[in-house]
Amino acid sequence: MRLKRYIRVLGIFVRASISAQLEYRVNFAVNLFGSLLLAGGTLLGITILYSDGTPLGGWSYRESIVVVGLFTLVQGYIGAFLYPNLNKIGEEVRQGTMDFNLLKPVDAQFLISSRNINVFRLTDALVGAGLVIWAASGLENASSIGALLGLCLIVTALTIVYAVWFMLSMTAFWFVKVGNVTELFNGFFRAGAFPVSALPGWVRLVFTFLIPVAFVTTVPAEAIIGRWNAGSVLGSGVAAVLLLGVSRWFWTYAISKYTSASS
């Protein structure tokens, strides 16, 4: 019953978002162009990295393109779902309008995470998915089981990204002046455009455990190209559940400390 209500609310948000954005019709063309540019640029980068004919961190050119595809897909997910919602938290805390979210009879974390959807940024996700499918279709070791597992790992990856992004934007409850913390994620996530094994020694460890970029693109890509190992699959699941749990705890903690703006 509860789930049904949430799905209905979500549906209303989606419709309203589409309706609002169709007002800006140039957006569609602009975003599609942007997606192609991003994917093209990242592909160009990979091409340059492979120009001397040696593999990158043990990955072939085609295999790397699966990573590029996933990278673009996640960018689209961030642009369409996370950015338009979570980056408003700071502003709402400052203006005191956060109060309205807390007063509604729907889970407030759900509410502030799902109100707006930037439909046009889904072009990134489409281009990314296209790249993954195209690159994987030419690989011998790609299988339907791998693809299925990859799909599951994409879901855990998106969960991880959501949890990290959510926690970063939650800092707005304390640091009113730092409105751009989520840009930190954007900066480091650039490393997700390459297989994590391309990075030297300890940098690889940083991007696996400290900043879980490896779980977002490399691990699902490994499954898709048929090279997964139980350790990282399990790690991805654990990381997702753990981070989601921590983000939930962080949220309850943040609102318990929340003093609404008085002005």
Binding site: R15, I18, S19, A20, L22, E23, R25
Partner: peptide, 10 residues
């Protein structure tokens, strides 16, 4: 107003 109007004006 509404989604239909939006599509039309799109």
């Amino acid at each position: 107003p509404g989604l239909r109007g939006s599509l039309a004006s799109f």
